[in-house]
Structure formats: structure tokens, C-alpha cells
Design a protein around this nucleic acid. Structure first.
Lengths: 242, 242
DNA sequence: CGAGCCCTTGAGCCTTCTCAAGAGCGGTGG
DNA sequence: CCACCGCTCTTGAGAAGGCTCAAGGGCTCG
């Protein structure tokens, strides 16, 4: 039985790849840069599509709205991620993109991006890779929500957040959740109380720790322990012997 | 309160659009055509990426596999849909694509597609629109699973299936589910028993009907009734007065 | 120092899952 | 032709995970 994701070899160059990609994009697209602050909305469902956005720093959440008023966080975006793909097909965005922190986004008019892609095939490759990654990740999200019990979902969420940071060369031993319990619960399909209980259990099991002040900072001494915790949730049989 | 999706005006030309798109693709890409039968696997997780596929007829399911052996249906594909986007980023497919019926897929080598796109910008537009649609739909799936109770999820699933057929100009008053209760449950994050109970309830409420023989065929006299049922599930207050 | 959030924790309830039994349908072989 | 087998589906009863409701504590900011 295969038991570990093992996300390929990339230790010291974590983040360098992202930085390199961003450098290339900046160079070839010369995008307009725009500072954002917590709560800023970069685009909104229903708004006419025109730009894609590249996140140079900060964090974003993507919020989906249904016709009947349900509202759900369906994605999280980190440095190097693209935003706005959902708008291409219908020429209107179908989600809101909301900043969860101070940061900088690059504005890339879709039409001029296409023009640039025609000249630089590597650009097109990056665009497609970004869309592909988003599709693959959305599916993983769906699988987590569908197949994991609540506690494991929270653990997997933290693992995902930590790994996203690690991929970009950022610290993961102490991370700052940019979301309230309610937002996390919304993203994971559970209530804020359940999120809180799950975090308490993770802390009790020493899989995570809380900083001295505030429960927004989470210490993750070992990301692998989070994966192990998920596995433990999936194998309910305590396996008394052997 | 906005209460109805109202998916734009497209009655008699439903399906014509799809057919037109396919005609264009066939013409410009001259793809290799490949017949498939129920259970055939077009590509598999881990396999080296090279081709995208366009579904000309039949139905596919996309199955995601986790490192620890969980398996989940994360997508359904109908005529005109593209398959294989998940493989672009990592140069390996990360899902299985499995035929649920006899059908025909067109094989489109990614590299030659890019070459064709360079010559025909409309092609690139179609490619991006397909990827964009997939991203938007994956998010809707996540929202359904996260925000709807079991019964509503099943109703919404039927609505989605019926609308997918309608968009392609196919009948929706009587549809044949290509999936077992177990597969539907897996896709929706619930057990097969819950799916069965939900379908029974939908039938009892006359929102759907079952054909004389076999419970695989579902009669949907009015797709709108499915949406209404979803709304009813969301508004638990019986609203006794007024 | 008080107001407004956000978070935690408990108790009871409800939806959904689990386990189990049985029916319907289709295929196979005696 | 019919008996049998395997698979799928339905339905019930009981268990349980997660939700709802409620109370209380901690931060932050004015």
C-alpha cells in the first residue's frame, strides 16, 4: 500500500521556481501592479471579464455565490497563483476574489496576454500549467470534502496551507491563518464549532501547537504529522495486536 | 431574493452550438478518432501526459486517486467536453478517465494542438473556454457538496445531468443514469443507501419518476421542479402562515 | 474600560452512516 | 426452461458524527 505523497525533490529551490516564473512573467508582460489590502475585492461575480491577475504577494480567497444566496469559499490563492480563469468561458467572472492580507497583484489584460503568448510560447505554457494546476487542485479539494471526516479535513487543510507556503519558500513551522474559523469551516463544508474542536484535538495530540497569544497563529513542527493524522482518521481500526 | 438560475435563452439551438464547435475542431485538428466502450480507460493517473481528448459521444467519469487508496469520482464528461487538462501542469495525468458508455473520443496531441492554435486563434479561445468552464464547474460541485443536504445534492445532481444533456440538445424527460447508486454516492460524498433514499423521496414527491422496468432510467418531467426541490431543502422553515 | 468579534466548550438533537435483510434483474449452465 | 448466482437496489433499525443552541472567555480597538 502506497502511503506517502512524497511531492518530488525540491528543498533548497523551493520558492526559487516561483520567483523565477514571476520574474519571467513580469519581464514579458510588464503588468500593471496593484496593491491590495485585507478585504479588497479584485473582481466580483457578474462583473465583465477582461483581466487575469497574478498574485505576487499576499493571500486571496475565491468565493462562489449561488443564485439562491449561498456563499462559499471555493479556493485559496498564494504567491504566484493566477486569478480570474473562471471568467474566460462566459466573459463574466463567476466568483469573487477577496484579499485576505496586504499584497500585490499584477493585472494582465487577457487580450494582451494572448498577444504576448503568440510571441513567447513559454508564456502560453505557463498559463496552461496554471489552469491545469487549478483544475487538479479543485479535484483534490472535492475529494477531501467527500472522503475525509471533519477532523481529517482540518488537518488536511493545514497540510495544504503549509505545503503551499513551503512550495513558495516560506516558513511552515509557524503559520498565520488568514481566515476565521467560520471561513475555514465554510471552505471545508463544516461548522465553525467543528473546526474549533478539530483544532483543539490536533493541539491536544501535539500535531499542531498554538502560539502564546492568539489562536490565529498555528505552529506546525512537522507537516508529515498532519498527513499521519489524516491517515489515522481513515483507519478507524485501532489494530490492537501486531 | 433571486431564486432561479435561468440559464439564458437557448432553446432550439441547444446542441447546435456544441455540434458547431465540434465540427470546427474536427476540421482544424483532423484528430484521430477512437471508439470506446463501457469501462474503457482513456488515460490513467500516473501515465505520461501527451494528449488531450475531446468527447464526441458517450459519457465519461473522471476518477481521482489519493496516495492512500481513496478513490473518488470528481467529474462527469459529456459530448463536446475535453479530457486530460489535469495532465498539463505535471506532464502526467493525475486522474483516470473511464468510459461509462459506448462512445467516440478524438485524440488531440497537445503539441500539435498548440501548433494549430498558433494558426487559428479561435482554437485557442475554445481551449481556454473549455478549461475555464471546467474550473467554474468544479467550484460549483464543491459548493453543492459543502452546502446542500443529501437529498438536495441528489436533486442537484439530476438537474446538472439533465441540463448537461439539454445543453447538447438531448432529451431530458427520460434519462439513463450511467452510474450505480454507489458511484453517484461517491461523486456526491454520501453513501449508496442515502442516494437510494433520496431518489425514493424524489419519486414519492413526484419530482422524478421511475420507468416501468429498472431504476436506472429516471423520468424528469420538469427540470425546474428539481431546482425547486433543492430550494425547499434549503428553506427548512415550513412558513406556516403568510 | 466597555463593545464587538472571535474562539472554545458543553449538551442535546438530527442527519447521515452502518449494518442487515430481502427483493429485482440478468446471465449462465444444468 | 428453470434454478442459481452475482450484482444492484431498497428499506429498516440503531449508532454516531457533526450540527444547533447556548454560555462564557479572550483580544482588539476605540
Amino acid at each position: 500500500m502506497p502511503l506517502r505523497p512524497l511531492p518530488a525533490v525540491q528543498k533548497e529551490d523551493a520558492g526559487r521556481r516561483t520567483a523565477e516564473r514571476l520574474r519571467l512573467l513580469a519581464e514579458q508582460l510588464q503588468p500593471q501592479r496593484r496593491m491590495v489590502h485585507t478585504g479588497d475585492v479584485i473582481y466580483q461575480a457578474g462583473e465583465r471579464f477582461g483581466n487575469l491577475y497574478i498574485l505576487n504577494s499576499g493571500f486571496f480567497k475565491i468565493v462562489n455565490l449561488s443564485a439562491d444566496g449561498r456563499e462559499q469559499v471555493v479556493g485559496l490563492k498564494f504567491r504566484g497563483d493566477w486569478l480570474g480563469f473562471d471568467g474566460i468561458a462566459g466573459q463574466r467572472y463567476v466568483c469573487d476574489a477577496v484579499a485576505m492580507d496586504t499584497g500585490e497583484v499584477w493585472v494582465v489584460p487577457y487580450e494582451s496576454l494572448l498577444a504576448a503568448c503568440a510571441a513567447h510560447p513559454a508564456l502560453l505554457q505557463m498559463l496552461h500549467a496554471a489552469m491545469s494546476r487549478e483544475i487538479a487542485h479543485d479535484r483534490d479539494s472535492l475529494m477531501s470534502v467527500c472522503t475525509l471526516p471533519a477532523d481529517a479535513r482540518v488537518a488536511d487543510f493545514l497540510r495544504y496551507w503549509a505545503e503551499s507556503l513551503a512550495d513558495r519558500g516560506m516558513r511552515t513551522d509557524e503559520i498565520t491563518l488568514r481566515m476565521t474559523r467560520a471561513e475555514i469551516g465554510n471552505y471545508l463544508g463544516m461548522t465553525l464549532e467543528s473546526v474549533s474542536r478539530a483544532l483543539s484535538r490536533l493541539a491536544r495530540d501535539k500535531v499542531i501547537g498554538f502560539a502564546t497569544k492568539g489562536r490565529r497563529e498555528v505552529q506546525i513542527p512537522d507537516v508529515g504529522a498532519l498527513s499521519a493524522f489524516v491517515q489515522r482518521c481513515l483507519a478507524p481500526a485501532p489494530a490492537m495486536l501486531q
